[in-house]
Design a protein around this nucleic acid. Sequence first.
DNA 1: GTACAATCGGAACCGGTGTTCCGGTTCCAG
DNA 2: CTGGAACCGGAACACCGGTTCCGATTGTAC
Lengths: 194, 194
Amino acid sequence: MEAARPLRADARRNRERVLDAARASFREYGRNAQMDDVARRAGVGVGTVYRHFPDKAALVEALVSERFREFAEDGRRALEEEDDVWEAFTGWLMRCGEWQESDRAFCEYLTNAVPHETKALVAEREGLQEVDRLFIEKGKRAGVIRDDARPDDIPLIMAGIAATARTGGIGNWRRHLHIALDGLRSASDRKLPD
Amino acid sequence: MEAARPLRADARRNRERVLDAARASFREYGRNAQMDDVARRAGVGVGTVYRHFPDKAALVEALVSERFREFAEDGRRALEEEDDVWEAFTGWLMRCGEWQESDRAFCEYLTNAVPHETKALVAEREGLQEVDRLFIEKGKRAGVIRDDARPDDIPLIMAGIAATARTGGIGNWRRHLHIALDGLRSASDRKLPD
DNA sequence: GTACAATCGGAACCGGTGTTCCGGTTCCAG
DNA sequence: CTGGAACCGGAACACCGGTTCCGATTGTAC
């Protein structure tokens, strides 16, 4: 169903342009980015934007989806290339923070409850959860992550960083991340609730 | 200039009603709350809402301002009534989280950069910063807060909690807060960057 | 080369929401 | 009691931005 009819050459090219323009616009303005602006940057009419994406929400989802995938990939790579688990873990979240710093739409997505997610996005999110699981597990085994940590603590921290990446003053999200990481580190006198 | 002319009786009563309605509406819907809805809940016409607040932003600011003040007051009280500093500190932030959980507008305010703040709001925010300073100082002196912590780490954590109070699943913000608090606790092997 | 289907552009449309405006009403001073 | 200033209500307005639509254009199969 995907390759039913390979997009016409100009159509494919325009689709790329639209995606590029959307990336730029949404990263800068977040949800406030305007479809007209996306079209203008792409050097294309709004109609063309709508031919490739049914509506604005779909465009945002496509971009966020992309980010989730990149993030998960980066995590897997770190997990297998870096042999110090803690290094891999912190490096991974640090890079995530850097992306967030320059991607307003992504931050907004992480800090605001979204009504309905596409199947595609849910799948991407689940892929990421798997990476969270791997990190926590490996970290615990190596004794660097506290025993009562859970995979779903990571999204909490990511969302937190997303919030400060946009309001805490430039670069301050790094402190925030470090604090959270220290809280996740293994130590004998700690106990998370529940 | 404040008491130049004491508001007419009905006007004062309506002002209260508008504020009550606005509280309810903005807490539930955040920035998406509609002026018409506020007016309806207050049993008043939109015109009346606008007579007391120049525009929507002013209304939001009034409410956020109120929250900042309450939060600062609560902190001062905890600081002098509770003699265990760490208890006071964690209790304070916990209560803050609980407020956030039921105040969407407040969360949104903390997690989104706002263009221009009113003098009044800035003052309120500074009052809160003073409380942050007191907590950090007293905590360090008691040896329960790490030496390299800074007063402005607290707003970072608050913003982080605000993010998860709305996206992390019910009650999960508590875990997030605990992790952050453990990261802020004093321990010998830690060092924040910068 | 030609024809037709896919694609394009962007003006026009349209719903939603903040804000204004003014005739009617209410409060209060004298 | 009464005049008038302050206040009220909510219909109407204005603007903004997402979405639609269709005549013009372009790519490609035959």
